[in-house]
């Protein structure tokens, strides 16, 4: 299995494995002092199909990052089940089939861009596929910066490297936690379009966590709107817009109609 995955090229992702994500009745409570507890998530049911791009949209503190951390196997649900690719998240990460990029780029400052992108191979104990790394560096547009260190890169370039690192082992599932949260608005929009282009080539099952409505609508097949305290799913919006990576899309009336509606939903959420 892993050899099949590894040999798969950038443009032709691996096939044959089930790569959907399923959360059933997931709740998360954290114990406080003196027997009290706080409920972060309640009754989350969500299925993400193979090759689907789903965005979790919600105000900060609504528990959307907790959902992603549960899918990543970084936290256990208090009740309910989660399966990724037909197995537990931990099994998937042990098999090195999970890709992740966080808001903080978490590039190792003492490694070059290339060494950072190669890191997952080292962790998995696999031989480095240099041609693949090369392809990926070009794909995310970092050609010429392979030997630079993270501190010499701009915020946008760091996130490109971070995304390339998430993709390097051709993961079954890609998890993105506010990957552009630290960028300015202009860079953020440009990176959105880049990601749309990259994703159109790869079509990996992807879960994106964001509080940016435009970003969610621009990138996702479906947008899941969450409300906070405790975190619940309020609404799921299927997005069917043509030409995602096209510059004109953000100016189209259909796009704005959806964005306005979802924004309104977030605002009423906050008031509640």
């Amino acid at each position: 299995m892993s050899s099949v995955l590894q040999q798969a090229s950038v443009t032709a992702p691996s096939t044959g494995s089930t790569r959907e994500i399923a959360l059933t009745g997931v709740a998360k409570t954290y114990p406080l002092k003196r027997g009290a507890s706080v409920t972060a998530l309640a009754g989350i049911d969500l299925e993400i199909a193979d090759g689907e791009f789903v965005a979790l949209l919600g105000p900060s503190g609504c528990g959307k990052s907790t959902v992603l951390r549960i899918v990543a196997g970084l936290e256990q649900p208090s009740t309910g089940t989660v399966s990724v690719g037909g197995a537990s998240p931990q099994a998937l990460s042990k098999a090195h089939r999970l890709g992740v990029a966080f808001q903080e780029h978490s590039l190792l400052p003492w490694l070059t861009v290339r060494q950072n992108i190669t890191l997952p191979y080292k962790v998995a104990g696999r031989p480095v596929d240099t041609a693949h790394v090369r392809e990926l560096i070009d794909l995310v547009g970092l050609g010429g910066f392979e030997d630079a260190r993270p501190k010499h890169l701009s915020g946008g370039m760091r996130q490109r490297a971070s995304i390339a690192r998430a993709l390097v082992l051709d993961p079954d599932v890609l998890l993105l936690d506010e990957p552009f949260g630290a960028l300015d608005a202009v860079t953020r929009r440009r990176m959105n379009k880049e990601l749309a282009r990259i994703w159109a080539e790869l079509r990996i099952t992807t879960l994106l966590v964001t509080h940016d409505v435009d970003e969610a609508v621009l990138l996702a097949d479906r947008v899941v709107v969450m409300t906070g305290r405790p975190g619940r799913i309020r609404h799921i919006e299927g997005i069917d817009l043509p030409l995602r990576e096209h510059t004109e899309l953000t100016r189209s009336p259909e796009f704005h109609e959806i964005v306005d509606r979802l924004t309104g939903m977030l605002e009423t959420t906050k008031a509640a």
Partner: peptide, 26 residues
């Protein structure tokens, strides 16, 4: 090394000793 690094290595499926050598020690 901050939580993002720990989370990253956890998601990458790294054993404790691998994380120690690649992140914590440097």
């Amino acid at each position: 090394a901050g939580r993002p690094y720990r989370d990253l290595f956890s998601v990458l499926g790294a054993r404790r000793a691998v994380r120690l050598g690649r992140v914590d020690v440097p």
